[in-house]
Computed example of a mutant assay.
Amino acid sequence: MSYIQGYDPDTLREIVDLHQCRQRLEEIGAQRSLPALLERVWLLKVLGELDEALTVADDAVRQARMAGTRRDLLRARILHATILQHRGSFAAAVAEITTCAEEADGQGWTSIAAFACQHRGKVHFDAEDFDAARADFKRALFLRQESDATDGQLQSLLAAIDTTERRRAEASIAV
């Protein structure tokens, strides 16, 4: 079940049903499997509980490092970086996602590389580096097309590119 109802056209953040997210968080409870930890991190993030999200994200990265695959570790690290992003630590988030994107590219894991580029684009967007955001979103779009992504995934990237271009134009007018 997807809890994402859409994306805010100005911030590019997920629009979710907060009640459903809280309910799902209660259902997961204290489960310690890697999928449960990753889902808890995401739910805590969209609910704005960033301190707890960071703690759980740290646990998820540790667990993925010890018992998961390299792909699991990349996904956990990217999600960890999104918590850093939401906390305003843009440079740390970009650094972490960049290493993940490079490893995914090197391994030929197109869908993970696209996921990383898309999230790095969102970090750049939040940091108001619209040129870098646009480049990352375009790279993610290319990678998603290469990996036969769903129409929804492609549409969200096209919308992100449009929003980034609009914000970039507004920023250049303001200068």
Score class of each variant (00 low, 15 high):
E128K: 15
D148L: 13
L74D: 07
A60M: 11
D8V: 01
Y3F: 15
R62P: 00
S147N: 10
R22H: 08
I83L: 02
A113I: 06
V46G: 05
T11C: 06
A127S: 11
L50C: 09
Q23C: 11
T99C: 01
E27G: 11
R75P: 01
L44E: 00
Q23S: 10
L25T: 04
A171I: 11
V175D: 04
K122N: 07
R40V: 01
S147D: 12
H86E: 05
R144K: 05
L84D: 02
V16Y: 02
P35F: 04
A95Q: 11
V46D: 01
S111R: 15
G6N: 10
F115P: 00
P9L: 08
L54P: 00
V16G: 01
A60F: 01
R40E: 04
A160D: 03
R168V: 04
M1E: 06
H80E: 03
R62G: 09
G106V: 12
W42Y: 15
A169I: 01
D151S: 05
T164C: 15
C21F: 04
V46E: 03
G152L: 15
D126R: 08
L50Y: 09
V46T: 03
D129A: 11
A64K: 08
T163Q: 04
L79F: 00
R40Q: 07
A132P: 04
L154F: 03
Q5A: 06
A67W: 08
V61I: 03
T163M: 05
A95S: 15
E102Q: 12
T55R: 12
A149Y: 05
A169L: 09
A93K: 10
A149F: 06
T110E: 04
V46W: 04
C21L: 13
H19C: 07
D151V: 08
R77I: 01
Q85C: 14
W42M: 14
L34T: 01
E170S: 15
Q20Y: 10
H124I: 02
D136Q: 03
R70V: 15
H80M: 06
W42Q: 07
L141I: 15
D126H: 03
S89W: 07
A76C: 02
G121E: 09
A53G: 09
A81G: 10
I28Y: 05
D126C: 12
Q63T: 10
D162W: 00
R22I: 09
M1Y: 06
A76P: 01
R70T: 10
L84M: 06
F130M: 12
T55D: 00
H86K: 15
R71T: 07
V16M: 04
R168G: 13
T98R: 14
